[in-house]
Every structure is written in structure tokens, then in C-alpha cells.
Amino acid sequence: MVVEIIISFFIVLSGIFGLVGSFGLIKLDDTMQRLHAPTKATTLGVGGALIASMLYFLLVKGSFSFHELLITLFLFLTAPITANFIAKAYLAHNATRNDLPETGRDYGWALYDDPPLLNETTDPRGE
């Protein structure tokens, strides 16, 4: 009984955060703002469902499942890269140099400027 309540709690939690993330997609209308909604759904939304699944297999089925940990690992590896690609594609298409703040460096943002040649830099950064 207690176990079922705990598991249900995590499932409901993940549902709520998934819903709020989707609601954010509807409510916000700037692409960069909308990008924040899915990064949330994939963290606590999916996280809650994974914790519930792990608890279910551990406490009800009596076997430990590693797959949820792997899903977490792969999500943490892929989600930021997807978001970064969307952000870069959006900037390349819709923003100009003047829309973005200064870099505070000698070079502009990588979207508009080429990286320095290796022999030009006094501080090689391996890029």
C-alpha cells in the first residue's frame, strides 16, 4: 500500500511537470523562451517516471533494473545537444550580430565569426 502510494506520487509528479512543460510551449511565443519548456519536461518529467519505474521493479517485482539509469544517462547526453542545435539554428536564421550582447572578447560569437587561427592566438584553446 505505502509502496503503491510512493510510486503513484512519482508518476503523478512526472505527469504534472510534463503537462506544465507542454503548457509552456503553448503559452510562450518566442522560440528561445519555448526552448526552456522541453528542457524541463525531459528532466523532472521523465525523471519522475523513471524513479517510479525503478521503485516498481525494485519493490514490487523484486529485481533491480539498470535500464532507467541508462535512459537518464542518454537523456543527459542528448537533450542539451538538441537544445543547443535548435538555439543555434534559430539564431542563425533570425538574429543578427546586433541582437546579441558583446562577447567581451576580441572575437565575436562563433555563429558570425571564424575561430582564430591556431598560430595567431597566444592562448590556444584547442578549438
Binding site: 526552448l35 543527459f76 545537444i81 543547443n84 567581451g104 572575437y107 565575436g108 562563433a110 584553446r125
Partner: peptide, 28 residues
């Protein structure tokens, strides 16, 4: 660092400066 910034909700890292000396972050 860029991945961490994106995964913590409220901030998304967008791009680096060409010499990788600063990072552009969008804050909700």
C-alpha cells in the same frame, strides 16, 4: 558546462564566442 547550463531549467546555452572565451546563455 554548456550541457549543465542547458539541463538546469531556466537557462539554455546558445553559442560560444569564436575563440571559446565566453558563452552566450539565454535566461527565461
Amino acid at each position: 558546462l554548456a550541457g549543465t547550463i542547458t539541463m538546469t531549467p531556466g537557462t539554455v546555452s546558445a553559442t560560444l564566442s569564436a575563440d571559446a572565451g565566453s558563452i552566450l546563455v539565454h535566461c527565461l
